[in-house]
Amino acid sequence: MADTAVHAGHESGHHVTTTGLSNNKLAMWLFLGSECLLFGGLISTYMLYRGRTGDGPGPNQLFDIPLTSISSFVLLMSSLTMVLAVNSAKRKDDANTKLWLVATALLGSLFVGAQVYEFTAFYQEGIGFTTSLFSSSFFTLTGFHGVHVSIGVLMLLALAAMITRNRVAGDKAEAVELVGLYWHFVDVVWVVIFTLVYLIPA
């Protein structure tokens, strides 16, 4: 294998790229940079419309801050378990890598579960997707975030399964790190949403 193009992303590939950095990791960071503009757009839409509640209840009457604080805390802790998975993978400790990946996925699922519960509760209080501009933009923003978390859970579990069956092509530690970057980004987006949407009064 004499050439850079084909080596990309492979363990030994780090040393043949121009910058010495992994192609996959550069791609992931570019993608996350791009995601900033996606979530920025959704957050701005919500900020613009959060006061337009029509006849329905507004954010201040609706949000259950203690519940959301707990689920925010859960997601934050999943970042810790993720970073432990990344460190285990760097140590080539497969058993702990899998353990922390699954733990992260569980915490993520818990967060999604809380979100589903929250959406159901809102719906029962009479706030549907189409009730008002506030509700549409709220459900769109948090829904997009929830979908991102769900995809993250899917990737975490898939990665754990692939490690078990030894089906990870290329650098295992890097694969964990890439999923980790994605996961932390989703967490960081929630940090912003939690403050701007839930905590700052409209």
């Binding site: 294998m1 084909v6 492979h10 791609a27 995809i151 990737m155 890439l178």
Partner: peptide, 25 residues
Amino acid sequence: VLEPSVAEPGDYESPSDDHHMKELD
């Protein structure tokens, strides 16, 4: 993701996979 790489495992592209799923789901 599971496709074997005939020559070398150099084709592994994790970010791309993340990407389609995110965009599509």
